[in-house]
Design a protein around this nucleic acid. Structure first.
Lengths: 131, 131
DNA sequence: TTACAACTTCGAGTGCACTCGAAGTCAAGG
DNA sequence: CCTTGACTTCGAGTGCACTCGAAGTTGTAA
């Protein structure tokens, strides 16, 4: 089973993922993405596996992981199975940070809702102001 | 009732809020904070109300609001009650974004937990690898 | 009186994560 | 043959949100 057919141009990957072609080349340059296979004309050809990896990277970014930590993670990934413990450690750490971040956002959301409600009440029954 | 006693130096506010003195002056410079009252020696003296406002600003930042939007909000606040509708609109918009962000984080958290569990299982019962 | 710390303004510098522009190659279409 | 357009590399530029350093003033303590 060949899960790595090389069929997509950088343009197509940009459209599929929402990253710009600039960002795709940038990610490769800094080692977030392994050197992508090339067609005879030296153009990049992305496999489905490549897309999967890029989408995973985007999720890491969206959780707030820094580019630097993603570089470390990508490097570990390339080491193969022997790096599993470190990767699990990184993901576990990240998961905890995401959990904390969610809780913080929920707190702030409460305040926003409270303020919206209060300000709203001032609008319908006017003439006063405080916090 | 005077809720605006002027008693805190910039240093004390920095310690109380966790912002740096640089950032406090920066926020004032760009209009996020109104011009703080001064002691005779021209040193800033922050009131409890000022602290309250700064803490609110920090919460807006933590939800992801940009400095630019915070400038707009601060400006509206200074207009007084007549700006309430706009402020409610901004807060409502922000609340929706926070809601969406929380959901996104929860999705990514699910994936992280899944990966951690799967990689963990590889560690105890070794020799295989996939997604 | 002299040292020191904390404050002041101002403009410049930093780090991050892109984002872009220049200059060149190459293949297909008219 | 010539144009068009998608690709290539490389280094430089951008925008955001701080962050810092220099140079000066002031108030207290030894």
């Amino acid at each position: 089973m060949n899960t790595s057919a090389h069929n997509l141009t950088i343009q197509q990957v940009a459209e599929a993922t929402g990253l710009s072609v600039h960002t795709l080349r940038y990610y490769e340059r800094i080692g977030l993405i392994h050197p992508i296979d090339r067609a005879q004309n030296s153009h990049r050809r992305y496999s489905q596996d490549d897309i999967g990896w890029i989408e995973f990277l985007m999720k890491l970014r969206a959780t707030g992981m820094s580019i630097q930590d993603m570089q470390i993670y990508a490097h570990l990934q390339r080491q193969g199975d022997c790096s599993l413990p470190e990767r699990v450690a990184m993901l576990t750490q990240l998961e905890a940070e995401v959990e904390a971040h969610i809780r913080e956002l929920q707190e702030h959301q409460k305040l926003l809702r409270h303020k919206i409600k209060y300000y709203g009440s001032l609008l319908t029954a006017p003439e006063r102001e405080a916090s």
